[in-house]
């Protein structure tokens, strides 16, 4: 096994262990909160998932820009952008799901047109469209360029969506960890569990993108080999003719 593969496996194992640990700490060790009771346990996974979603879209955008700029254009950037967007959509979906499970007891409804919820739903749709675009069969460069532009258009939209829906409706609590003043309001074992949650899901994200990237790169390399064969075939037909 190459160093690369070992490292990747290490990340995967670390992700599994830290996620398990987060669940154990979150469900067993930490106490229920004063006001929220057992509902607080959702806090250990919900914000980390939302964070991963944003991280993923950020990476997709950065990789797309690197692909669009001709001097740094490499197939790998396109594949990373795709892998990261897939992980992003997955974690956005989980964010909405866990948020909904939280919302039922906390607000009494599964879904409400609150600012953050709505913004997250739009985010989900934005990148669902991006993935749909990628599914259409087209040549590699064409897909790369077109989806990179779509990713750019989508990402620029994120702050605008946030601004508009924030004015529209606000019901959600101010994000408890990353609030503007940056002082952490969660204390003790709870804080450590939440921190572990962030680490765990970030590791899981890295492992997912890495694995997806390598798979799709192998697919692309396989396609390259087919290209070599196709060229040889075409040229040999030429020799027969002559």
């Amino acid at each position: 096994m190459s160093t690369n593969a070992k490292l990747k496996r290490g990340v995967g194992v670390a992700a599994l262990v830290t996620i398990a640990l987060t669940f154990w700490l979150g469900l067993v060790v930490t106490p229920p909160a004063e006001v929220m009771g057992n509902l607080v346990r959702m806090l250990y996974i919900h914000p980390p998932m939302a964070w991963i979603a944003y991280l993923a879209y950020g990476i997709t955008t950065a990789a797309s820009l690197l692909y669009l700029w001709k001097r740094t254009r490499r197939r790998e950037w396109d594949l990373i952008a795709a892998a990261s967007a897939e992980a992003g959509v997955f974690f956005t979906g989980l964010t909405i799901l866990t948020g909904s499970i939280w919302g039922r007891p906390a607000w009494g409804v599964w879904w409400t047109w609150d600012a953050l919820l709505t913004a997250t739903a739009v985010l989900f749709l934005l990148y669902l469209g991006y993935l749909a675009l990628r599914q259409v069969p087209m040549s590699e460069t064409k897909r790369g360029v077109r989806s990179a532009i779509a990713a750019l258009v989508a990402f620029i939209d994120v702050p605008i969506v946030h601004e508009s829906v924030y004015w529209w409706k606000t019901l959600h609590q101010t994000p408890s960890v990353l609030n503007p003043s940056m002082n952490v309001e969660v204390h003790g074992s709870m804080a450590w569990t939440l921190l572990l949650g962030f680490v765990a899901f970030t590791l899981a994200y890295v492992w997912m993108v890495w694995t997806r990237f390598e798979t799709s790169r192998r697919q692309a390399q396989l396609a390259d080999l087919e290209v070599e064969n196709a060229i040889r075939e075409r040229l040999s037909a030429e020799e027969v003719r002559i």
């Binding site: 396609a223 087919e226 196709a230 060229i231 075409r234 040229l235």
Partner: peptide
């Protein structure tokens, strides 16, 4: 020069 149209070498070397 090799030009691929999808998986087909429309121009081959």
């Amino acid at each position: 020069a090799t030009v691929m149209l999808d998986r087909f070498p429309a121009l081959a070397r």
